[in-house]
Amino acid sequence: MSFHIPCPNCGARAIEEFVYGEIVVVPDSITDPDERNLDRAFIHGNPEGPTSERWFHAMGCQRWLTLRRDTRDEQIILTAR
């Protein structure tokens, strides 16, 4: 699947120019430090729907950006630096 990511520095570019980065969210309900670390290290939210994530524009400005994307249809909802 390829789609375009609007890089705030460079403009819209094909996804292949970027490296994916996950934003890990550990639920507040987990309080034990070891369990929080285990969750952070291995567990993925893996949502079917909108998710926030990071992309590194390796072929361009070499900076990270943050965006929201819907994993069901790859629609990009929002981008930020």
């Binding site: 789609f3 490296v19 993925h44 998710t51 069901r72």
Partner: peptide, 15 residues
Amino acid sequence: IDRQPSYSYRSGHHF
């Protein structure tokens, strides 16, 4: 595999 997590079955041209 494609690097981003996704449930989309849509095929890409780059692939």
